[in-house]
């Protein structure tokens, strides 16, 4: 595989690495990065807890996270209390949802303004936020890699057209573009041939977020390909009569894949933050579905009385994005140790 991994290392090989594959070497280097490993564990925990959301809702909290429970009751310290509590002081104005009970069976993190269990919605919301983040990042990296490879390798008119296309997308502020697309698309159903995308479907935020970040990956890959094309091993392959397809598949692509791998966690982080922003603006995930962004929106009107509703998903987003960014750095260091040395210098 790639020259960037194997041939590019100028430092003398470490004794224990002799005979190991570049991926095994990278994994060993990654394991030595304690912060990176810690963040991987955090990320795995977040993903796992989101995956068990139905288990928590059905068997621990015994709650319906997508159904209003405004007139419902719960148990706190052995007493039955209303989930939405009427004010009993002064003029008796306002209704306040129950706060955190710290009891996983009864509104661990309290209720939102529909009387729904915030903890259960946080876990379900995590599933949607992570799914959108992951799927959008895959879409971004796939499209960005294809466009970057084609533009960088074929050059000329192809490069001109594709690069200008990326420039056009790049020219719009990312959030503005995402908001415009979401506003137009998010509340209506669409049919593309036999495929029907219902309004409120998660496919829409995935596609929108996936598209707006394509230039981030596409331009990096294009730059990498332009540089690779001038390298001796590529010229040698051309000299030996390799076809364009073979050149792309066997020589260019393996050398840009590390760039894409390093960008991938960062793209997930960006997609999660963008999804949260769109959902906060009511143009991402549609109610009663939850995502971390929608829960923050639900909590916005409760900031004074029940700050946990907004804080809990906020903390989840911060932890996830931090973990993904640190993980991205750790992956880069593991795949390309020179980058770390360069950064240190």
């Amino acid at each position: 595989m790639g020259e960037a991994l194997a041939g590019g290392l100028s430092a003398p090989p470490e004794p224990e690495t002799a005979g190991a594959s570049p991926w095994a070497l990278a994994w060993r280097r990654f394991r030595r990065n304690k912060v990176g490993v810690a963040m991987l564990i955090v990320l795995v925990l977040i993903v796992l807890s989101s995956l068990v959301a139905p288990l928590y809702a059905n068997h621990v909290a015994h709650t319906e996270p997508f159904r209003s429970n405004i007139d419902g009751t719960t148990i706190v310290n052995g007493k039955v209390v209303p989930v939405m509590q009427d004010s009993s002081t002064g003029l008796g104005l306002g209704v306040t949802p129950i706060g955190p009970t710290w009891d996983p069976h009864h509104y661990l993190l309290g209720a939102d303004n529909q009387g729904r269990d915030v903890a259960a919605r946080l876990l379900y919301g995590g599933r949607n936020s992570l799914l959108i983040g992951l799927a959008a990042a895959i879409l971004t990296c796939t499209l960005g890699t294809i466009i970057g490879l084609a533009a960088g390798f074929f050059g000329g008119t192809v490069d001109g057209v594709l690069s200008r296309l990326l420039d056009v997308v790049w020219a719009f502020p990312v959030f503005l573009l995402a908001i415009c697309l979401s506003t137009v698309l998010a509340t209506s159903s669409y049919s593309i041939g036999p495929v029907r995308i219902e309004s409120g479907s998660l496919v829409l935020p995935i596609v929108i977020i996936g598209i707006v970040y394509v230039p981030y990956v596409g331009r990096s890959v294009r730059g990498e390909v332009l540089s690779l094309r001038e390298r001796e091993f590529v010229e040698a392959a051309i000299g030996m009569g390799s076809s364009s397809w073979r050149l792309l598949r066997s020589d260019i692509f393996p050398n840009v894949v590390t760039t894409v791998i390093v960008l991938f966690p960062i793209m997930i982080a960006l997609a999660i933050v963008t999804e949260a922003a769109l959902s906060f603006l009511s143009i991402g995930v549609q109610p009663p579905d939850a995502s971390w962004g929608t829960i923050i929106l639900d909590g916005q009107s409760l900031l004074y009385t029940r700050p946990t509703v907004a804080l809990a998903p906020g903390i989840a987003i911060v932890l996830t994005v931090l973990a993904l960014n640190v993980l991205g750095d750790a992956v880069r260091d593991a795949l390309d140790p020179r980058a770390k040395h360069k950064a240190a210098r």
């Binding site: 004010s87 002081t89 003029l91 306002g94 209704v95 306040t96 009107s301 009385t305």
Partner: peptide, 18 residues
């Protein structure tokens, strides 16, 4: 906003007109 109703209904009763 709903999360301020209890506050104004408790601390500012003379200033609330229903």
């Amino acid at each position: 906003p709903s999360d301020r109703l209890s506050e104004i209904g408790t601390k500012y009763t003379d200033q609330v007109k229903l």
